[in-house]
Design a binder for these strands. Sequence first.
RNA 1: GCGCCCGUAGCUCAGUGGAUUAGAGUGUCUGGCUUCGAACCAGAAGGUCGCAGGUUCAAAUCCUGCCGGGCGUACCA
Length: 554
Amino acid sequence: MKQELEQAVAAVVKELFGADVAIELTRPEERFGDYATNVALQLAGKVGKSPREIAEGLAVKLRENLVAQVSDVSVAGPGFLNLKLTDSALVAAMHAEPSKNHAGQVIVAEYSDPNPFKVLHAGHLYTSVVGDAIANLFEQAGGEVHRVNFGGDVGLHVGKTLWAILEKLGGEYPEKLGEIPMEAQAEWMTQAYVHGNNAYEEDEDAKAKIIELNKRVYQFHEQDDHDSPLAQIYWTCRQWSYEYFNRFYDHIGSHFEKFYPESETAPIGLATVREHTPGVYQESDGAIVFDGEKHGLHTRVFINSQGLPTYEAKDVGLIMKKWQDYHFDKSVVITGNDIVEYMKVVLKSIEQFQPELAQRSTHLTHGIVKLAGGVKMSSRLGNILRATDVLDAAGEANKAIRGQEDMRTVLGAVKYAFLKQRIGGDIIYDPKESVSLEGNSGPYLQYAHARARSILRKTDSQPTELNELQEDERSLVRKISEYPEVVEKAVDEMMPHHVCTYLYELAQTFNRFYEHNRVIGDQREQARLSLVQKYADTLQVGLELLGISAPEQM
RNA sequence: GCGCCCGUAGCUCAGUGGAUUAGAGUGUCUGGCUUCGAACCAGAAGGUCGCAGGUUCAAAUCCUGCCGGGCGUACCA
């Protein structure tokens, strides 16, 4: 409907003024109409007439041409053209679907990216939720979406953790790991990491041992060593981590098709970097670097002077591996914004030898999840906000209001609280208020949905098509008709928060309708049933797009 | 120092060229359940859109400078 109208307006502009302009219809405030355009204001300079004069001319012609879809064309303010749809056109628009403009495309979405040997913190929960929503958006647009995950099962942090684990165990005694109960494993390893990290910075002797352990870990992979005592400790703890991750992802409803451990991307990354050295990369002080300064970026180390790959080389390997596995049309990587400059360097280096990979890659970044009150978190100090802390706090709030905890509501509250904000900035998390069950919140939407479903359950009469809309009905139809446009915008910008903003407005519109209009028993019952049904379906589909369940009852 | 990002109501955020009056939520105050679910609805109060210039018929939105905050700036991720 929107596109159709845009073309019609563009045709009239060309006919009357001979100008080729792309018309973009916007959604004005309801009192002005259903669609609006400022084309007359844009044209005023070129045509040499007043905007209102131009708008009046266009309005006359549009009324003739669009008589089937548009009941009123008005000129307002400095020269806006407002279109009001006929009831039948508006009802038709309400039934439109978002376009499948990613049909046939292969899209790899990488997000969450937790490191084995460490605990999942609030940031992992955030990126999992946001990544799921973005993956869902592409999927509904027809894309073949592959959700993948990446994490460091090798690297300095593993050396640090392993060093502290040896301290705890009193040596290389893998059998002692059996004493750690499953629920305590993640926390136990995290404490080891904090301890090891402090030792690395404060104790020269420990630092040397950690560097040595880091090298040995790489050798476990190179030599396929699963038997030596230290290797047994390493593989057992790595496995603990993956099981812990999977329990968590199951709990929040995230499902990854593949997990790329750095140990797998490191060899291909090393080989790729070496293959292009010298040339793209070059030796410097015993390390292999990419000279980013030529491109206005930083120079970064890809292979350190000990011959080990840094994160940079592993990321090169990751992109190569994804390419081998999927031959993607689009690769989206979602991470914190602290690595935005870093990622530019990695992509710029890849652009030198395989430009299409860099062109097809998008790096989407977000801020950090912060505690309200300016409390600083640090994984090194061990005072980070854990993913489970966020869920627990939401659970408490849910329990306080309903007497018992409903996991669908708790997850709905947390996910929506994260998703409703535009991706990019920091997220302030207030255990008391941020994960709200009222107002602009997930549970508000779930409740609004359940209430509508409850109406539908209470009658056996058959819905009939809407016509001759009453005022409140028209407001709701109008709001529902915005859904496809909002979803398309969210896909284009990779910004799920647009969907949140819209769903909240949609639920509000329904709640207002509900406040003043009966459905069951009213003489318009059957027509209104079809409206309530379409509303509930739209809300449900929208929530599910965000990864939030829409319960029939709550 | 240089680079990137951010600065909108007490708090948390939408709005990123256009609409008499810059919008929500929350918090404060007030009104609404004998009627389909009140996790709801209605109303009041609350803003030099960080500051100063500039571009434009039109600037929270674009440009420049400044102030404040965050992150990055070679062998961490």
